[in-house]
Nucleic acid binder design. Structure first.
Lengths: 186, 186
DNA sequence: AGAAACATACCATCTGGACGGTTTTTTGTC
DNA sequence: GACAAAAAACCGTCCAGATGGTATGTTTCT
């Protein structure tokens, strides 16, 4: 495991690798398995090296959170940029980022967000901040009761997938999506 | 803390107390803080006493889960018994149990369920089982796309409360509920 | 008396992280 | 551009504390 010692140093790549590995670990095996040892091992870095990038475990978890929230927000913004500013645009982008095939890669990360939020109550304050800012930014186009309802439903559907619940079949999921999109336009 | 040693022995009460304390702890301070020490202390039992009721930590967590799922299902059944078997009855009971003031006491327990499920991936199989059975039992009255959508929205709203997200104000929440109930009737 | 319901003491393991060392990269200087 | 020096990016080890669990009492119920 002394690879990183010899290879060309690219700290940013290592940092990113660590964050991804930690997220995957947290999602698949539960937050309890996210130990410095396990993460460093899976990321191909020594524990000392890991602690160089993230001076404490708390810092690692916070780093994960910030990284994920950042990526999620960016994905939504990009998705929104592809559509005119009609009513419900934000809500539809929210839906697309959570379920469209193009974003399926990141959706695992998005799931990790909740896992973290539930495991680390102190992060909830930051989440609240982000959440409030979004609501405020898109109050004009997405402030309706139905839009909010749709976003809640998206969260619920997404949670059920996260819990390995018996999700709706593909065709039914399609029907659900269509219904949600329709509601977002009201 | 040698109270339990002297007081009249009522093992069932102690067991229940332990489960409640553990749930509260998991919800407020995160799953990581649910240690045998902390739980036993908060429940007024020694660690040995705790391990007498739950031979391992795994058993404690499983016990918590079973207890909560059981109570949740029972609350829904009771709520349903008070209404005729119309379309969407299960969905409305689901909603009522999650948000009506009468069930506000237990709602903390429901929240703990998700906390546990995300922290302990192995419980997801059991959850899936329960979930499938419910869907099957009420397919006739609550199988519509809209009913499922409403239940997802309930989960989402409930998750947002769990995360201390900026929930809707009381009047808006009322509006949301009305809308959800209306959708459950379609 | 015997089993169940506790308590107390103790142990093995794991985990976070502090520490000192080594190698690579960057920076400043001529 | 050369080259020393400082900083950054790592590695490997060790340790104190926490945690789950065991072993062995002691009291209370039946």
């Amino acid at each position: 495991m002394s690879k990183a010692h010899q290879r060309r140093k690219q700290p940013e790549a290592v940092r990113q690798q660590v964050l991804e590995v930690a997220a995957r670990l947290s999602l698949r095996e539960g937050p309890a398995r996210v130990t410095l040892e396990a993460v460093s091992q899976a990321a191909g870095v020594s524990k000392g090296g890991l602690l160089h990038h993230f001076p404490s475990k708390q810092a690692l978890l916070d780093g994960m959170f910030d990284d994920l929230v950042g990526k999620f927000g960016q994905a939504i913004d990009e998705e929104m940029a592809r559509h005119p500013a009609e009513a419900g645009r934000f809500t539809r982008a929210y839906l697309a980022v959570c379920f469209s095939p193009e974003h399926s890669g990141e959706s695992d990360g998005w799931k990790t967000l909740v896992t973290e939020l539930l495991a680390e109550p102190h992060l909830r304050a930051r989440w609240r901040l982000w959440s409030e800012r979004q609501a405020e930014r898109h109050a004009a186009t997405d402030g309706s009761v139905d839009a909010e309802l749709v976003r809640f439903a998206v969260d619920g559907l997404w949670l059920s997938q996260l819990l390995d619940a018996p999700g709706p079949g593909p065709e039914r999921q399609r029907a659900l999506m269509d219904r949600l999109i329709a509601l977002s336009r009201l």
